[in-house]
Amino acid sequence: MFTVRVSLPTVDALEENPDPTDYSLLADDDNILIKELSRGTVNGQSKTIEHALGYYPHFYAYGEISSGRFQIANGYNMFGDFRSYVNDTNLYLQNTTGSDKDMRYFIFYDDIPE
């Protein structure tokens, strides 16, 4: 069987039983590498970013809580300053601070439920 291995410095890529932590790329098994679709910044209190993938993609979102300082927009906490969630069409970002804020996002091709 054909495979591709890229090992870290000093590690022999031809070893018989490779440890995944010794490799920057190890295609022997289905190691997960997250593949980026898009990234961006939006400003406001409620924003919708279309990804149109047709499934629920992996994503990260952040809100600028003060100038140059960012907080993870994690989940849909009713008391949090920032919220984020995704469906099969869009990423939804919301800030509840009462004023417009920058929100940064990263959307990946990787299908969360898969």
Partner: peptide, 14 residues
Amino acid sequence: TPNDYLLKLNLNTF
């Protein structure tokens, strides 16, 4: 689709 790949060089791997 991108989900079929471990690595695809024209997609940024985060």
